[in-house]
Amino acid sequence: MARRGRLVIKPDRCTGCRTCELACAFVHSTGGLLGLSRIRIREAGAGPEGDRHLQMTCLQCIEAACVKVCPVDALVRNEDTGAIEVSERCIGCGLCAVVCPFGHMHFDRMLGRPIKCDLCGGAPTCAAFCPHGALEVR
């Protein structure tokens, strides 16, 4: 099946405004708790045109460590979008967040669940809200 599009990250356009974080937090949690955003802006030092920023979010790895470590096969690839999604099978052991080599998965102790990018079912909200064209769906 044809995939619906990839989330393309263009760090050179990112101004660090964090609109994506807010948008993500609002679609994925009531009240838009920033701590629950699945995309995070990291500062990347100074460049010739001011401070640089990087948008960090799940890479939806082909051979994903989180998928390998899960004891109950709770992390499932959505074949339509390519995203690895946390299913209802999760028992909250937290291993996936421990082994993600990029720190893109966050285990929420209160929820007892990992938080990760699910590409919003194929239409990433972060990209729709980025005012600078630094996140694109292609």
Partner: peptide, 27 residues
């Protein structure tokens, strides 16, 4: 699980900051 031992050595936040530095050096 057979993943490398160093996969279990760092917290989420430090892994993300290391990764961001690595990505920055590529970009």
């Amino acid at each position: 699980k057979g993943l490398p031992e160093e996969y279990y050595d760092f917290c989420e936040s430090c892994k993300q900051s290391t990764a961001s530095k690595r990505f920055a050096s590529i970009v």
